[in-house]
């Protein structure tokens, strides 16, 4: 799993399938307002695409999308987007996570909540995607110095 595999079938299948899975993940994420889906499911699908690449073509060749070094920081960034939305609401006078107080004047409260939900789900997607990849990398020891 660490080095590139010998079999071309697996590599071609992984290379071909991973973008489709990730496209599906992005679709699920954006369709979360209207049907089953949302940040978490989309994030897991995006992570599944990357994990398929990690399994199929080897860890060192699949660093292009998400590097092992940056996963923890990106996961923190995703969670921080979520928390930051709430803190902005506090700064503009509302309660924590009250999207109606987000500083966008030309939208009414209901629409503001619509976009607030979308914004928060971006954070969830980033955090879940990179988080699952980070756990996988740690389990295999990919991020360790000297094994990379």
């Amino acid at each position: 799993m660490i080095s590139q595999t010998q079999s071309p079938i697996i590599e071609i299948a992984a290379r071909g399938l991973a973008p489709v899975i990730q496209l599906l993940g992005i679709y699920v994420f954006f369709h979360g307002h209207y049907g089953p889906g949302g940040g978490f499911q989309g994030g897991v699908l995006l992570a599944a695409g990357v994990l398929l690449l990690r399994l199929g073509i080897g860890a060192s060749h699949s660093q292009a999308q998400v590097t092992s070094k940056s996963t923890v920081a990106l996961c923190a960034l995703g969670a921080f987007i979520f928390a930051g939305t709430g803190l902005v609401a506090i700064l503009w006078g509302g309660d924590f996570m009250d999207y109606a107080y987000l500083p966008v004047q030309w939208l009414e409260a209901a629409d503001l909540r619509y976009y607030g939900i979308l914004f928060v789900e971006i954070g969830i997607t980033i955090a879940v995607m990179t988080g699952l990849i980070a756990i996988y990398d740690d389990l295999l020891g990919i991020g360790n110095a000297g094994n990379n």
């Binding site: 089953p36 499911q41 994990l51 996988y136 295999l140």
Partner: peptide, 22 residues
């Protein structure tokens, strides 16, 4: 539907991968 979707994605995908890696 939401929860079932999540459980299918997670249970068949990620959990399996984690166990296999372990």
């Amino acid at each position: 539907v939401d929860v079932g979707f999540t459980e299918a994605v997670v249970g068949a995908g990620v959990v399996g991968i984690f166990f296999v890696v372990a």
